[in-house]
């Protein structure tokens, strides 16, 4: 394989900015900090960089996440990095947290009572955790009785799940669809 070196200065600036940023950096930001980094050029530059990393067998690469670019270590090195972080890694989300996030993602802005009604359980503790982990945030007050606080998902939510927008998630299936699946199931009782 011919290993072409990247000589383009702008590509290197883009690389430096992505490397230095601690959160995903958007194309607009890259352009703002580096005039030559025209939005149309950025993706090409990132692809060239990723190709270079692959050719050089680097332990990291650039991913597109939460509407921006971010340098991350490759999956293959996860076990060593976990050791580095030792006890400091964030714990995985609980089933309750994931369900609550699902409701917020597709119903936002949404209030606690609405979430609790869908899940059938109180979700105060879960909301607190999600706020602390910055996966959700307040988005004003609703119209209903007591003007309940409303919640929405954050950019950190997108980053955490490795997606660019809520549209990247499969929409909740419609109830009709759920029922259809139920009917389609082979029924043992019928001879």
């Amino acid at each position: 394989m011919t290993k072409e070196r990247i000589h383009d200065q702008t590509t290197r600036v883009i690389e430096a900015l992505i490397f230095a940023s601690d959160v995903p950096i958007t194309a607009a930001q890259l352009h703002q900090y580096c005039e030559e980094a025209a939005p149309s050029k950025i993706r090409k530059a990132v692809n060239a960089l990723n190709l270079e990393y692959t050719q050089q067998d680097r332990s990291f690469h650039i991913i597109e996440v939460a509407g921006g670019y971010q340098m991350v270590t490759r999956e293959a090195y996860a076990s060593w990095i976990r050791k580095l972080f030792h006890k400091r890694l964030r714990s995985r989300l609980t089933q309750a947290a994931l369900e609550t996030l699902s409701v917020i993602a597709f119903r936002q802005p949404v209030s606690r009572p609405e979430i609790a009604a869908i899940r059938g359980v109180n979700c105060d503790a879960v909301i607190k955790t999600l706020l602390e982990r910055k996966l959700i945030t307040l988005s004003g007050r609703g119209e209903g009785p007591g003007k309940p606080l409303l919640y929405k998902t954050t950019r950190e939510f997108l980053r955490y799940f490795g997606i660019n927008s809520i549209q990247d998630l499969p929409r909740p299936r419609e109830i009709e669809e759920l029922l259809k699946e139920d009917e389609d199931r082979p029924d043992d009782a019928i001879e």
Partner: peptide, 29 residues
């Protein structure tokens, strides 16, 4: 049924979380 719809989404999120937790970025540090 309404609950089941979102429970399915939660399963997707679970898979995505699982995959994403194998990447480390500077904000994790």
């Amino acid at each position: 049924l309404e609950y089941k719809r979102f429970k399915e989404v939660a399963e997707t999120l679970n898979e995505k979380e699982d995959r994403q937790r194998r990447y480390f970025a500077r904000c994790d540090f």
